[in-house]
Computed example of a mutant assay.
Amino acid sequence: MDQFFSTFFLYSFLGFLIEVAYTRLCHHPKQDRKCLLFLPLCPVYGLGALAVLSLPALLLRRPLLVFLAGALVATLVEYVVAVFYEKGVGVRFWEYDQQPGNLSGRICPLYTLFWGALSLLTVYGLQPLFSPLLARIPLGLTQILFLLFAADGLLSLFLLHRTGSTDCLLWYRRDRPVSPGQESM
C-alpha cells in the first residue's frame, strides 16, 4: 500500500510540473495550476498514472495497446475527477469548452491523445526508472506524506466548497481576486 501511495504522490507532483511548464510555454493567462492549498500536486495525474499502471500485464507489453487503453482510462479518470470537483465541490479546474469534440468541457480528444502519450512515457520510461526508488521509501516517510496530503486535501476541499473558486488556493498571491462571500472575512 505504501508504494501505491508513493506512486500516486510522485505522479501527482510530476503532473503539477507538467501543468506549470505547459502554462509557461503557452503563455496561458492562468499560470497557477495548484489543486491543493500547500502541496504542489495535481491528483488527477496521480490517479491517471495509477489507473494506467493497473492495466492488465498483457496490455502493458504492447505499446499500441498502452497508448489506446491508457488514453481511454486516463480520460475516464479526468472526467470523473472533473465531475467530482464540479458537482461535489462546486469548482472547475479545467475547461475544454473551446476544444473541438469536448464533452461538457471536461474532456476532449486532443487531451485524450496527450494522456495516451503520457501513458507510454509512464509505462516504458518513468515507472521502470522510479519503481526501484519508490520501493525504498521508508514506510514512516510515506505515512507522513499521506497525512500531509490528507490534511491539505481536506482543507483544500473545504475552502474550494466554501468559496466556489480555485483562487482560494492561491494564498501566496496578494493580487488574487476576492470570491463571492469573502468580502466580510
Rank of each mutant, 00 (worst) to 15 (best):
I137H: 09
Y96Q: 07
G15E: 06
S104W: 15
G15W: 02
E183P: 05
P100I: 10
D97S: 14
F146K: 05
C168R: 09
A49C: 07
E95Q: 09
F9H: 11
P177V: 09
T23F: 13
P177N: 13
A117E: 08
L148S: 06
G88N: 01
L65G: 10
L169N: 06
G125A: 15
W171R: 11
P177W: 09
L59E: 02
F149A: 03
L36G: 00
H161G: 13
P180L: 02
P177D: 10
L157I: 14
D167C: 07
P63N: 07
F4T: 11
L129I: 06
L126N: 08
F67L: 02
F114I: 11
A150K: 04
V89R: 06
L118G: 06
L55I: 00
P63C: 03
E78R: 01
C35L: 14
L59A: 15
A74N: 03
C108H: 11
P180F: 00
A71L: 08
G181E: 04
Y96E: 00
Y79H: 03
R92Y: 02
Y85D: 04
L139H: 15
T122P: 09
R62K: 11
P43T: 04
C42M: 14
V80F: 07
F67H: 08
V178P: 02
L72P: 02
I107G: 06
L59K: 00
L55P: 01
C168L: 10
L25M: 14
I107H: 01
P29E: 12
A74T: 07
I137L: 15
T7E: 06
M1E: 13
G125Q: 01
P177A: 15
D2F: 05
L14C: 05
Y124E: 07
K30T: 13
P40T: 11
L37N: 06
L154S: 00
W171Q: 12
S156T: 12
V89A: 02
E19W: 11
P128E: 07
A135Y: 04
E19Y: 01
D2N: 13
T75W: 03
L155N: 08
R173V: 10
A51G: 03
R61A: 11
L126G: 04
F114W: 14
P132Q: 09
L14I: 10
Q143D: 12
K87T: 03
L155D: 03
